Simulated assay, not measured.
Amino acid sequence: MAVDDVVRLDAVRKVYGNSRTGVVALDSVSIGFRRHTFTAVMGPSGSGKSTCLHCAAGLDTPTSGSVTLDGREITKLGERELTILRRERIGFVFQAFNLLPALTVVENIALPVRLAGRRPRRGAVDTVLEQVGLSERRKHRPGELSGGQQQRVAIARALITQPSVIFGDEPTGALDAYTALEILDLLRQAVRSGGQTVVIVTHDPVVAAHADRVVFLAGGRFVGEILEPTAQVLAEQMIKLGTQGRTPAGQVS
């Protein structure tokens, strides 16, 4: 594992079903995500993007291979240890905001800390509320907020534990273009100012172009990456992957 990798997958293979007739979602994927960076994972439908994210986040267990987070191999942890690690070291932002409708904004944000049996640090909720621009909405419930505001609450909830890494599965998929840009700016701020690492799965080249690095999966394999990407280059690469299925591993042309 590279010194500056906060998350590392080594020869990760994931098969759903039995070994003879099962579906191979990931096929010996080895990839690292450096600390304090913003990475997007792209690939055709069925390429293994979400499975890669779920294995990296400890939400799914690889059939073989290893996943290391903050220098600790998580593939060998029991469910209780994994739950504690996810709660303390990992933040999640999904397309579905996953907020509890009966709780206020403040209560939703504080939920990960409360579930750990603790109280949020003094001023911590106010700090993340200010970060996401929702200080005046603290007593509102999710049903009283727009989609973009609900996703801001989800980001604040992900930030409250000061995690090592934030994983996002299509975090802007349910939002209009303008609101999506606002959410992406918040994720970039988490990297630049908060020192977090952000890894998102997306099919949208415009969204992925906000990342420092884009990695590509095809057929369950890592097939290349682009640094400092543009939306046009990413769109062209997605078309290429869709028609060719796979390019040689390494730097995508």
Rank of each mutant, 00 (worst) to 15 (best):
V3M: 13
V3K: 11
D4L: 06
D5F: 03
L9W: 02
A11D: 01
A11R: 02
R13H: 04
R13W: 00
S19M: 12
S19A: 15
R20V: 12
V23T: 12
L26Q: 04
D27Y: 05
I31F: 06
G32E: 02
G32W: 00
R34S: 11
T37K: 03
T39Y: 08
G46Y: 00
S47W: 00
S47Q: 11
K49S: 03
T51Q: 08
C52T: 15
H54F: 15
A57I: 12
G58K: 03
L59P: 10
D60H: 07
D60G: 07
S64V: 02
L69Q: 11
D70G: 13
D70K: 09
R72G: 12
I74L: 00
T75D: 03
K76W: 02
E79I: 03
E79D: 06
L85G: 04
R87H: 01
E88Y: 08
I90M: 14
Q95S: 06
Q95A: 01
N98P: 10
L99I: 12
L100D: 11
A102H: 07
L103Q: 11
V105T: 15
R114M: 14
G117W: 02
R122K: 07
R122P: 02
Q131W: 13
V132I: 13
G133H: 09
S135V: 07
R138A: 14
K139H: 15
E144K: 08
S146M: 09
S146W: 13
G148L: 08
Q150N: 05
Q151F: 09
A154F: 11
I155K: 06
L159K: 13
I160V: 14
T161S: 14
P163A: 06
D169Q: 05
D169I: 01
T172Y: 09
G173E: 13
A174C: 09
L175M: 12
D176F: 12
A177S: 15
A177R: 13
L181H: 12
I183K: 02
L186D: 14
L187K: 09
V191N: 02
R192T: 01
G194D: 03
G195P: 12
Q196A: 15
Q196E: 13
T197P: 13
T197Q: 03
T197V: 00
V199H: 05
V201T: 10
T202K: 04
P205Y: 03
V207R: 01
A211D: 10
G219L: 04
F222N: 06
V223R: 12
V223P: 04
V223L: 12
E225Y: 11
I226Q: 07
E228I: 02
P229R: 07
Q232T: 14
Q237R: 15
M238F: 01
M238I: 09
G245M: 10
R246P: 00
T247R: 06
T247I: 10
P248W: 13
G250P: 03
S253W: 06
S253G: 14
